[in-house]
Amino acid sequence: MLELSNITLGHFILLSCVLFTIGMVGVLVRRNVIVILMSIELMLNAVNLAFVAFSRHHNLADGQVIVFFVMAIAAAEAAIGLAIAISVFRKFNGVEIRLFENLKG
């Protein structure tokens, strides 16, 4: 089933699935908000890999343009996520995810 001789589109998509799952595990299992943000970056990168693989398969540059935009948005999201994490850290002197409940109300 696992064909190792010549690399095809499926190998890249499988690798992208593996990366996406690892990112999802990170989000669900970890307590520290910053590691959760990193796992989200990991998931976004897995999607980028799938985009580039498909764009290479169909020989269309659209996939790569979308990856361009995903990178811009992921960077913006990381910047804002860390801004909130810093504010919580300065108030509660900790960065665990349970401290973020106080943001309610």
Binding site: F68, M71, A72, A75, A76, A78, A79, L82, A83, I86, R90
Partner: peptide, 20 residues
Amino acid sequence: SVKFYLTAVSFILFDIEVVF
């Protein structure tokens, strides 16, 4: 002190501008 955060954030955003 945490004032390095703003430099790094504005670096990311202007780096994306350079990349475009």
